[in-house]
Amino acid sequence: MHQDEGFPVSRRGVIAGGVASATLAAAPAAQAQTQGSAQPAPPTMPVTLKVNGRTTKINVDTRTTLLDALRENLKLTGTKKGCDHGQCGACTVIVEGRRINSCLTLAVMHEGEEITTIEGLGTPEKLHAMQAAFVKHDGYQCGYCTPGQICSAVATLGEIKAGIPSHVTGDIAAQPTVTTDELRERMSGNICRCGAYANIIDAIHEVAGTERTA
């Protein structure tokens, strides 16, 4: 058995703004303000993004995620930043036909790729069938996870059609079908804290032309 005893901590510790050297052992006395060391400008790179059918060339800090490039550089703020760590799905977009978390990929990694965001699916004047179904079934509340849910839902139906199995697929070697369990499992990478899940599943069923099975 490991000893479940308190980790020894000293009363004093220098914690460099969260840098890994944050030792909790004894620390030097308070330092006076020092002169900041000069740092080079961060590397930038050009990248050409094809978003919703429009090609745009931008110059980005290499650190810029696809999510931030969409939101901050292209002002396409329909794609949301919920956690910035791939834990919520609010940033879901469709790249080269596949849904991904745009927060966990760099803009420079998508040179020339076709990207579809919520704005590319439909507009208030001309809703995509999935957007209309979300409105009809009240598949949202605060609306913040909604663009990600919709992009994910559109891609999910494509994944089932393409025969990609899921955790709840009964026979892993067989063609999966649109069942309620399949939709729930496949949509689980999109968190909705308002809890519109049941309505979202109803909306996807409507677009798929299938009935709830559970």
Binding site: R99, I100, N101, T105, P165, S166, H167, I172, A173, G189
Partner: peptide, 29 residues
């Protein structure tokens, strides 16, 4: 990898393990 027909047929445990992990979005990347 999870969707490959050969994997699903002959290495089902691998396909199953893959689809039990993360989310659809993450598995695509």
């Amino acid at each position: 990898l999870a969707a490959d027909a050969r994997v699903r047929k002959d290495y089902g445990v691998l396909s199953r393990a893959l689809v039990s992990g993360a989310s659809g979005q993450l598995r695509n990347k």
